[in-house]
Each structure stands twice: as C-alpha cells, then as structure tokens.
C-alpha cells in the first residue's frame, strides 16, 4: 500500500463498502459503546419512536468511516474529526465510505469525508485533519 505522502490533492483514499447493516452489527456496537438506546436494536421501540424500523447509531457509522485512515496510523494520527449526521441508516442498507484529499500542508492533510447509502445519499458528512506528526516517545 502506498503511503499518504504520495496522495495528491483531489485524490481519494480507497473506498470501502460495508456489508449490509445487520441487527447483530448494532447489538455489538451497543455493547461495545454502552449506547443501549433501544431504537437501535428493538423493532417495537423504534416504531414507538415513529421510525419505520431500527436505525444504526450515528456513532457506529462515524466509527466505521474513520477506518479509511487506519492503514496510515504509522504515519500520523487523526487530529480533528468533524461530522454532521445527515440521514438515517436502516437495516440492510449498504454503506460506502469516502475520503478525498482537499489540502496538503506541511504537517496536516485535510480531507472531506462522507458515508453514503445504496441510493447514493450521504448519511454522514464532514472533515478529517490527519496530522503527520509521529508520536513516538512517551511523555
């Protein structure tokens, strides 16, 4: 895999398409994150809240989107990660993760990031600033 240093402004990181969202994905995220809001796991509760069915935790999608950068954590780290939640993610939705390099600084790389569903609609959208400073020594 090539490093981030070879990426040019306007180029994208390799997209990732997730498997269709399953109930188990959301149960696992509830357990791992401690967010047990039942609209993410229990049909009746989602319906009571006026939803057509259970929806993914926004933070599940945001957590997934960050993994576009995981292969580069030996070059730096995510310094800023800002997201707006734009649309709901339902069971069986197929989510694709995107990141485009907007700006290349001495120490920072700025990306536009988004996750879209099978209809091409963005469900979350925002920015990542990747800092190329390596954190080596313990302080």
């Amino acid at each position: 895999m090539t490093g981030l240093k070879d990426l040019q402004v306007g180029e994208s990181l390799e997209e990732i398409t997730l498997p269709p969202v399953s109930r188990l994905d959301l149960i696992k995220y509830a357990g791992a994150s401690g967010d047990y809001n039942p609209i993410h796991t229990i049909d009746e509760e989602a319906e009571k809240a006026g939803l057509p069915g259970i929806i993914a935790h926004g933070m599940w999608t945001m957590g997934n989107l960050a993994k576009l950068f995981t292969p580069y954590y030996e070059e730096g780290f995510i310094q800023d990660y800002s997201i707006r939640f734009k649309g709901m993610v339902f069971l069986n939705d197929v989510i694709t993760l995107h990141a485009v390099l907007d700006e290349q600084g001495e120490e920072e790389l700025s990306f536009s990031v988004r996750a879209s569903n099978q209809d091409g609609r963005d469900v979350i959208k925002g920015n990542v600033v990747f800092c190329k400073r390596l954190i080596t020594a313990a302080t």
């Binding site: 926004g58 933070m59 945001m62 954590y73 780290f77 995510i78 310094q79 800023d80 990660y81 800002s82 997201i83 707006r84 939640f85 800092c131 954190i135």
Partner: peptide, 10 residues
C-alpha cells in the same frame, strides 16, 4: 446532530 473530535495525540 453533530459530533467533533480534536486530538493532541492518539
């Protein structure tokens, strides 16, 4: 609605 993180280091 929105969520932002800022890190000084990982």
């Amino acid at each position: 609605g929105e969520q932002n993180y800022h890190y000084e280091r990982p």
